[in-house]
Design a protein around this nucleic acid. Sequence first.
DNA 1: GTTCCGCATGAATCGATAG
DNA 2: ACTATCGATTCATGCGGAA
Lengths: 290, 290
Amino acid sequence: MNEPIIRPLLGDCREVLRTLDDESIDLIVTSPPYADQRKNTYGGIHPDDYVAWFLPIAAELQRVLKPTGTFILNIKERVVKGERHTYVLELILAMRRQGWLWTEEFIWHKKNSYPGKWPNRFRDAWERLLQFNKQRQFHMYQEAVMVPMGDWARKRLKNLSDTDKIRDESRAGSGFGKRVANWVGREKVYPTNVLHMATETRNRNHSAAFPEALPAWFIKLFTQEGDWVLDPFMGSGTTLRAAYRLRRNAIGIDIMETYYEQVKASLKDLQTPQLSLFEAQEAYEPPRPE
Amino acid sequence: MNEPIIRPLLGDCREVLRTLDDESIDLIVTSPPYADQRKNTYGGIHPDDYVAWFLPIAAELQRVLKPTGTFILNIKERVVKGERHTYVLELILAMRRQGWLWTEEFIWHKKNSYPGKWPNRFRDAWERLLQFNKQRQFHMYQEAVMVPMGDWARKRLKNLSDTDKIRDESRAGSGFGKRVANWVGREKVYPTNVLHMATETRNRNHSAAFPEALPAWFIKLFTQEGDWVLDPFMGSGTTLRAAYRLRRNAIGIDIMETYYEQVKASLKDLQTPQLSLFEAQEAYEPPRPE
DNA sequence: GTTCCGCATGAATCGATAG
DNA sequence: ACTATCGATTCATGCGGAA
């Protein structure tokens, strides 16, 4: 099989998206700048303007997505004047009027959430992963994300080796973790719509601590090798790296040149594997023979 | 301190609520019948009619709640024609127009979600716990729900005994579980807005999907001893039992006489403790000297 | 007293069948 | 065509009986 095509693009996604072909993308996974966050990109959208800002982009995404494709939107409303703002709810309603189907809402449980203390709320440890589709029938490869489970938890309490412990850490509902490869041959079950994953604290370059295992999970679930993945808010390129490792083609767009250059550099590193990258790679799939 | 007053009431909450005094309740915790569910109660509300059905009730709840009080609403939208229905989103927007503040959304991660397999979705393992308030300043006693953690969570990885394993199972982010008593004296941290709890599938006397630890957690967080708790959809009385064990006064309303009689009977059991009840009590607080 | 194993039980969802 | 009912699918949990 050929090397996947990974194509980072520089520019405002509202314009760059227009250059993409109709119905050419199998999966869109993205984490757009949250309202009033990342003011250096897209000018820090005010919560009250968020829906109006995002809808034209959603329309373009609808155009480039294949009928059988899926759009995964990672988002969370921020607190404004002591309340959760409603722009995410309104966005869902507006996108449905635009023609999207709101198929599902996954929960990303951030096991290591941002620390802090407030008098009237606890730490926010979850984000929404909204699944939108163009039609009821879409491609989904559930077997690709199955996790070992069953009554395993009870039976194995006695002899608990180190590897088993690590298995348990990563088990927790969705099967992320470092030793997935060790589970081959065990009894597997399907995951749920709650994903347990830690944020990546290592990457301090990128403001959004989007762990690579997150796009990787959806890429495995909704695409096959050779399919096309799109991230219109590429950032540091997490989605693109996940796509490359899983042998999917990918397009990423970002408005900031620093991100664009950074992603290009990291992709070169990927094609010349180094130790640090090799460690990260283990998290998803064992190295494949070429 | 006196025995708490626990008052189950029989009738349609749309009428019974009118008999309660203005601003007399410190906390409302309830899990209303979901759309198209529980057809024996309130006739199984159609998803499209859900907001219109609930809004008048929400108005009465707003009237009886103290200005510093909190309303916790447990709800989850069902799938209709392959999509998540939007009535919960619309309900939040409508309640805000009614004057409620949408302060927070907690996630209840149901560790034992309903099984099943479908071509285009996974099992649903979470529900919403919507927090509404009348004003930005409300009573919140965060220390009452602190969870033992600290670096103990890391040490546990090395020497993992069976008991530690069980502790870990129940710890999982929010400190529910049966071994809370064992944690006395450990370093404590505040929980997050993600609650990990199993549904109570087979409770001997009462089959309640709503685990008692759930209302108990919010009762500890938002009330003090002697405060008043209200559950307008009492069901099998889970909220009332939790309130009694935590020495809060409580009012519960249900439209079905069988539930009403069942709750009255279970409350009598509570006041004459038996072994099984004593075990359950341990989950929340150690027995108190009278 | 423990631990272990078998079993019933869910705020589910889809697709097919029937009115 | 649109709604109502039914069977098939699936798994974490806790109980009870057994070793």
